[in-house]
Design a protein around this nucleic acid. Structure first.
Lengths: 191, 191
DNA sequence: CCTCGCTTAATGAACGTTCATTTGACAAGT
DNA sequence: ACTTGTCAAATGAACGTTCATTAAGCGAGG
C-alpha cells in the first residue's frame, strides 16, 4: 500500500465531487468542501481537473458512461424495462439528483455522442418489437420511448407534493402497470 | 405618473428576480444582475426583501399562488386537464424552470399549506369522478393524479435527449392520448 | 538529489450586504 | 406662489467575507 496513490485520490475526489454536486449543484458546491470530503487538500484538485467546472464535467462523463447502459433495454418487455429503470434510479438517488442539476446548469449543451447513440439503439429495438407485434404500432417508437422514460422516472422529477400521493411500496407497480397499458397492442399477439 | 413608485419597483424587482433565478438558480443568481435587470440599485433590494434568499422565497410564493389554481381540474376530462397543464407549462417556461430550481434548492422544505390543499381538492375531485364512472376505479385517485401530472409535465422534466424524440407539434397529443388510455374505464360509462 | 505528489499559505477577484448620502414628493407656513 | 422642513425612496460606493485559483514549500521514493 503506497502512501502516495494518485489514482486512489483521484477516485476519492470524484466520489466526493459527486456527493457535493448532487447536494448543491455547480454554483453551490464548494471546492474546499469537496476536498475535505475526499480527504485531500484543496490545491490538489487542480492537479487532477480543470477547476470546479472541469471536475463537474468529469463527474458527468463518468456518470453518463456508467448510467447509459446500466439498464439494457428489452423492447419486448417494456414494463419490465421501465421497472428496472425505476429500480436503478431508486438505488442511486445521488446520481439522479446530479443529473437534475446537470439538466439545469448545463442543459444548453448539445447531446453527447454516447447518449445520442444509446437513444438510437433504443428506438431501433422498439421498432423491431413493433414489427414483432409485442408493442403497439399506432404510435411512433420515439413516442413510446418518451412515455416509458417519463413514467420510469416519474417519482424522481417531481416536487415533494407529488411524491406524497403514492406510498413507496406501490410506486414500481404504478409504473409497470401504466407502461403495460400504454404499449401493449389492443389485440394481444396470442389470444 | 410618479417618478417615485415603490410598488412598481417592487414588481419590476420580482420580475427581474424570476428571470434571473430561472436562469441561474439561487446560488448562481447575482444580486447586482437582478438589480440591473429591474432598473434599480442593488441596495434597494434589501429594503424590499430579506436579501437574495428572501427574494427567492418571495418569488416562489407569488408563483405558487398564481400557478396552483391557474388550471382548474376537470376530473371528468382528465386528458383535457393534462393537455391544459401542458399548455400552461409550455407558455411559461421561465416558471417551470424556476420550479425545477426550487425543487433542488429548497426541496427539503415541507409542502406549503396552499399546495397541500390544492392536492387534496384534486384527489377529492378524482374520487368523485371515479364514483361517477368517468374515471377507472381500479386505481387509487392518488395514483391517477400522479400519472396525470407526470405525463402532463413529461416534456419539461427531462434532459434535452428525450426532448428530441417527439416533435413539438405532437407532444400535446402524446400526453392526452396517454392519459386517455390510462384513466378511461375498460367498460365505458355508456356503451 | 531530483522528481513527483501533496500540503499549506497567499492572492485576488467576486459578491452579498450595509450605510452615509442624495433625490424627490409633499405639505405647512408665510 | 414660493420657500422650507420632513420623511421616504433610492443610490452607489465601501466593507468584510467567501471562495476559486495559484504559488511556494516540503517530504518521500527512486
Amino acid at each position: 500500500m503506497a502512501t502516495r496513490d494518485p489514482d486512489r485520490k483521484r477516485q476519492q475526489l470524484m466520489d466526493a465531487a459527486l456527493a457535493e454536486f448532487a447536494e448543491y449543484g455547480v454554483a453551490g458546491a464548494r471546492v474546499d468542501r469537496i476536498a475535505g470530503r475526499a480527504g485531500i487538500s484543496p490545491g490538489l484538485v487542480y492537479s487532477f481537473f480543470a477547476g470546479k467546472e472541469g471536475l463537474f464535467d468529469a463527474v458527468y462523463e463518468a456518470i453518463a458512461e456508467q448510467t447509459v447502459d446500466a439498464v439494457p433495454i428489452d423492447a419486448d418487455d417494456l414494463p419490465g424495462y421501465a421497472g428496472r429503470l425505476h429500480d436503478a434510479a431508486a438505488q442511486n438517488p445521488q446520481v439522479m439528483r446530479f443529473l437534475a442539476w446537470y439538466a439545469l446548469e448545463r442543459g444548453e449543451r448539445p447531446v453527447s455522442e454516447m447518449v445520442a447513440r444509446s437513444m438510437d439503439e433504443k428506438i431501433t429495438a422498439i421498432e423491431a418489437a413493433q414489427r414483432g407485434g409485442t408493442v403497439r404500432s399506432d404510435r411512433s417508437a420515439g413516442e413510446i420511448l418518451a412515455l416509458v422514460l417519463a413514467l420510469a422516472n416519474m417519482w424522481q422529477h417531481h416536487t415533494e407534493d407529488v411524491g406524497r400521493l403514492v406510498p413507496d411500496a406501490q410506486r414500481r407497480t404504478v409504473i409497470t402497470d401504466a407502461v403495460r397499458h400504454l404499449v401493449t397492442p389492443q389485440q394481444p399477439p396470442r389470444g
